[in-house]
Design a protein around this nucleic acid. Structure first.
Length: 279
DNA sequence: AAGCAGGGGACGT
DNA sequence: ACGTCCCCTGCT
C-alpha cells in the first residue's frame, strides 16, 4: 500500500478525462487500471490517492506511469485570471495527470475511438483484451500485442465491434509487427516528425495522432481537437483558440477543457451541482 | 421497444 | 476547402 499526498492527484478525474479506457471504477471510490502488464487498484484518500502496491513497484513502475515527476500545480498557476473559463476548468480538473501509457495501446485505442462514444470505445477494447491479450490475473488480460492482432482475420476484429476500423487496426498491427513502423524509434523524433510518422498510418488523422502523441509519447505540447474542444472554442473563444501561450503543456490545458466541458454538459443536475461545489 | 445522439478519417471533387 | 460515405453502440 502506497499513499500519494498531492492535491494534483485524483483518480476519478483521471479516469473521466478521456485519456485512458482501461481505468475502470469498481465502486466505493475504487478504480482498477491495467497497464505495464500489471493490475493496480487505486482509491481516494484524504490527502490524494492510495495505490495497492509496495514501495518497489511504486518506484519502479507506477510513479512513472502516473507522471509523478511533473508538477501539475505549475500549469494552472500560469493561466491568466482573465480567462475565466480556463481558470475554472483547471481548478475543476486539478486532479488530472497525463498518464504515461504504452504507445501501441494508444495507437490502437485511438484508431478505434473515431466516431465512437467513450462507452463504446471501452467495450471494444475490453473485447480485444479479453480475447487476444495475455491473462495476467484471474479474468484480467493485458492489451494484445501487435503480433497477436496482426494474425487475426478481419472477422475476428469485426466481432469486437470495430466496424470499418478493423482494417485500420489490422494494417497497423502488421506494420508494427513487421517492423515497417517502429514505435520505439519514432519516439525519438521531434514533435513535427513524430506527427508525420503517425499520420502515415491508415486510419490516423490529425486528431488521433495528437492523442497518441499526448497520451502515448507524453508530448505535452500536443493539443488534440475533438468535438468537445471545438465546441468550447466556439462557445467560449469565439471560434478560435490560440494554444501557443501554453506551448510546452497545451495538452494539459486540453485535458482541463475537455473534462470540465463534459462534466458540466449533459449530466444529471445533481452531478453538475456537485461540480459547482468544488469551485 | 424504438428512436436517437454520438463520434474522425478517407477519398473524390 | 468541402461534401459524402463509413454504420453501429449505448442510452433514454
Amino acid at each position: 500500500m502506497k499513499e500519494i499526498v498531492s492535491g494534483n492527484f485524483n483518480i476519478a478525474d483521471i479516469a473521466e478525462s478521456g485519456q485512458c479506457f482501461r481505468l475502470t471504477p469498481l465502486g466505493r471510490g475504487e478504480y482498477r487500471t491495467v497497464a505495464n502488464g500489471r493490475v493496480l487498484t487505486v482509491s481516494h484518500s484524504d490527502a490524494g490517492a492510495r495505490l495497492d502496491c509496495d514501495d518497489a513497484d511504486y518506484e519502479g513502475l507506477w510513479s512513472e506511469y502516473f507522471d509523478m515527476g511533473t508538477d501539475y500545480s505549475a500549469f494552472s498557476a500560469d493561466i491568466p485570471k482573465e480567462d475565466v473559463f480556463l481558470t475554472k476548468a483547471a481548478e475543476f480538473g486539478k486532479g488530472i495527470r497525463i498518464l504515461r501509457q504504452d504507445p501501441w495501446e494508444m495507437l490502437v485505442s485511438f484508431i478505434i475511438s473515431q466516431r465512437k462514444s467513450i462507452p463504446a470505445i471501452r467495450s471494444s477494447i475490453e473485447q480485444l483484451c479479453d480475447r487476444y491479450g495475455m491473462e495476467i490475473a484471474a479474468g484480467i488480460h493485458a492489451f494484445p500485442t501487435p503480433q497477436a492482432l496482426a494474425k487475426l482475420p478481419l472477422e475476428r476484429l469485426n466481432a469486437c465491434s470495430l466496424g470499418y476500423r478493423s482494417e485500420y487496426v489490422s494494417a497497423a498491427s502488421r506494420m508494427v509487427d513487421g517492423g515497417a513502423l517502429d514505435l520505439g524509434a519514432i519516439g525519438k523524433l521531434g514533435d513535427e516528425e513524430l506527427m508525420g510518422a503517425l499520420l502515415s498510418v491508415r486510419g490516423v488523422g490529425v486528431k488521433v495522432a495528437g492523442c497518441v502523441m499526448l497520451f502515448g509519447y507524453h508530448r505535452l505540447a500536443a493539443f488534440p481537437r475533438d468535438v468537445w474542444i471545438n465546441r468550447i472554442i466556439d462557445s467560449e473563444y469565439g471560434g478560435s483558440f490560440d494554444a501557443e501561450p501554453y506551448k510546452g503543456y497545451a495538452g494539459v490545458i486540453q485535458q482541463y477543457m475537455f473534462y470540465y466541458a463534459r462534466s458540466t454538459a449533459h449530466r444529471p443536475l445533481s452531478f453538475v451541482k456537485a461540480c459547482d461545489d468544488r469551485i
